[in-house]
Each structure stands twice: as structure tokens, then as C-alpha cells.
């Protein structure tokens, strides 16, 4: 589903992502872990064609992300870390707006499903600017899955959500993957990755330090936290 080859992104003299290669296969829940500023968000933006790589390439669902960004974004669902829905549309109108852009049918059913699943039916006619951060996050989650994509790329999936909703979202993602969907998520919250990811990549200062199954760590009796800290601190000291 994702094939990244020597992906590199420079911002002036700063290298945000440095020759990163990895792949994510269908039905996998892949977590990209890294401290703040390590290159996770830049990676998602390159994979979805929002920014072009300086060098290297990314194929996402069979398309070159740099050459056909609209095609990629048409196929996948994306939850950006910081973006919020438009202020002056209601929650329902925003989902209908996204449905209009994606030319979806059965919009009523799709909207109802997400308002029910994420438990915010009572907010559907409230302007986005008046929604709490958590509810906005739910709405961004709903827009990403509205077209039932085969692949979802999620930047910090549980940020702003309460523990109950975090459980709901984690359950949904695991169910989604069991049903053949693929998830690429980036996070710095290690517990999420340890709990739901099949494989993880660890990125630090733009370089991929590790890529492998979470099960390997569990099998070797190590906790993800100590593994992650050893890797990152070791890299920082190198």
C-alpha cells in the first residue's frame, strides 16, 4: 500500500527527512514513532502529495504521490495533526462538504454512521468554531473515513480525545484493519503504538532508526518505551 524509497525533504539547510525507505502492506497497522520535530508530519505530507520530496519517491496505493497527489488524496483518508474544520460550517455541513468534494452518494447514511459511532449526534448542527477540540478531532476523523478508504494516514490520532473515545477509536482502527483496511499513523505516544500497531518505525532527526514488528519486542521481553528511549538517546549521543 505504501512504498517509500530514499525519501528526503530539505527545508533550506534543514533536512527534515533523510533518505527514509520502508513499506507498509495491505491490512497492516503501521506506527511511525518519533519525538516532536523528528519528521513524522513531513513524512505524512510527502506520502499524501501535500508537499513534494526533495529526492526519493513514494508510491501510495499504486500511485506516485509526487506526480499524482490528487489521485492519492482521492483514494486515501488523511487526518492532519493541526488542521481544524472550517469555522462557519456545522459539523454535518462539513461532512457533506467533504462528501461533495469526493462525489459520494448515500451521504445521509454515511454522516449518521459517524455521528453515531463517535457519539456526537447532538453536535451535528453546531458551527465548527463552537465545537470543543475533542469534537473537532472526531469530525476530522469522520471526514477521513467518510469515503471508506483502503488506506488511512493519521497524524496523532488520539490527541484531544477523552479516554472513552480513545478506546472507541482504537477499537475502530483495529476492526478496520481486520476488515482489510490499512493504517499509517504517526505518534509520539508510545502506548498507542504498543497496543494497536502491527509494526513500527522509529524516526529521529529525519532518519529511520528502526523498522520492525511490535511482536518482536514483546517476544524479547522488552517494553517499547525502553527500546524507543535507548534508540533515540543513542542516536542523539552518536
Amino acid at each position: 500500500m505504501i512504498e517509500a524509497t530514499d525519501l528526503t525533504k530539505n527545508y533550506g539547510n534543514v533536512t527534515a527527512v533523510n533518505r527514509v525507505s520502508f513499506s507498509v502492506t495491505e491490512g497492516e497497522l503501521f506506527g511511525l514513532l518519533g519525538p516532536n520535530g523528528s519528521g513524522k508530519t513531513t513524512m505524512i505530507r510527502m506520502l499524501t502529495g501535500q508537499i513534494p520530496p526533495t529526492s526519493g519517491s513514494a508510491r501510495v496505493m499504486g500511485l506516485d504521490a509526487a506526480k499524482d497527489p490528487i489521485g492519492v488524496r482521492g483514494l486515501v483518508g488523511i487526518i492532519p495533526e493541526q488542521e481544524t474544520p472550517p469555522s462557519f460550517l456545522t459539523a454535518e455541513e462539513y461532512l457533506r462538504f467533504v462528501a461533495g468534494i469526493r462525489n459520494l452518494d448515500s451521504v445521509d447514511e454515511r454522516c449518521d454512521r459517524w455521528f453515531d459511532l463517535l457519539e456526537f449526534q447532538d453536535k451535528r448542527d453546531v458551527l465548527c468554531k463552537d465545537l470543543s477540540r475533542g469534537t473537532r478531532q472526531k469530525l476530522m476523523f469522520a471526514q477521513a473515513f467518510l469515503h471508506e478508504p483502503g488506506l488511512a494516514l493519521i497524524d496523532e490520532p488520539l490527541i484531544n480525545l477523552d479516554p472513552i473515545m480513545q478506546r472507541t477509536v482504537k477499537d475502530f482502527l483495529q476492526e478496520y484493519v481486520r476488515n482489510g483496511g490499512t493504517v499509517f499513523l504517526s505518534t509520539h505516544i508510545l502506548e498507542i503504538a504498543e497496543e494497536i500497531c502491527d509494526r513500527i518505525g522509529v524516526i529521529h532527526n529525519g532518519r529511520l532508526l528502526h523498522c520492525g514488528p511490535v511482536g518482536d519486542l514483546v517476544g524479547s521481553g522488552r517494553h517499547l518505551e525502553s527500546f524507543f528511549l535507548d534508540l533515540v538517546k543513542g542516536d542523539a549521543g552518536a
Binding site: P86, F88, L89, T90, E92, E93, R96, F97, G100, I101, D125, V126, L127, D130
Partner: peptide, 29 residues
């Protein structure tokens, strides 16, 4: 906290022949 019934679709239908209907409706709202 302001609540509104869905006005996006009715507005978009009115300008549907122009294309970009949902964007135009959003601009109006």
C-alpha cells in the same frame, strides 16, 4: 453556540449548474 440546519446542500443545489457548487455554498455561508 450557534446551531443551523443543513444549508450547504440547498445552497449548492441552487448554484449546481455553475460547478464548484459546494465551494460556492461554503463561501456564502
Amino acid at each position: 453556540t450557534k446551531r443551523f440546519k443543513n444549508s450547504l446542500d440547498p445552497l449548492a443545489e441552487r448554484v449546481g449548474t455553475l460547478g464548484s457548487a459546494h465551494f460556492i455554498a461554503k463561501d456564502a455561508l
